[in-house]
């Protein structure tokens, strides 16, 4: 009986995991871009509410050296297309500083 419950719990939660991985990856940006993508310092950029297509295009530009950067080229090269897309979706859904 217990085993059955465990199994169903695993199956139920597995679909939520994909979303959570995007959130976990997005959390890694917060050291520079702020908790929930909002940072006060003006030399760093808030990324909360950024349109997903802009996020993806910017990351591609970093990768291709078409946009000057410090660490972001390396970060963009380390992330897969799927990871970038998932993070883009995640940040787009976050409220910007003005909305908060």
């Amino acid at each position: 009986m217990k085993k059955v419950m465990i199994l169903s719990a695993l199956l139920l939660s597995s679909s939520a995991f994909a979303d959570e991985r995007a959130e976990i990856m997005a959390n890694n940006c917060a050291g520079c871009h702020g908790t929930d993508g909002i940072v006060e310092d003006s030399s760093l950029i808030s990324i909360a509410g950024l349109k997903a297509e802009v996020f993806i295009e910017t990351m591609q530009d970093f990768r291709n050296n078409e946009r000057s950067s410090t660490i972001m080229r390396n970060v963009a090269l380390a992330l897969s297309d799927d990871e970038i897309a998932a993070m883009a979706e995640y940040f787009e859904a976050l409220p910007t500083g003005e909305e908060k």
Partner: peptide
């Protein structure tokens, strides 16, 4: 030189943004 300068600017900005996070 501009990139090195930018890294230095980010180094200082990071002290604040990171502490806040």
């Amino acid at each position: 030189e501009a990139q090195r300068r930018l890294s230095a600017v980010y180094q200082q900005a990071w002290m604040k943004s990171f502490t806040e996070d």
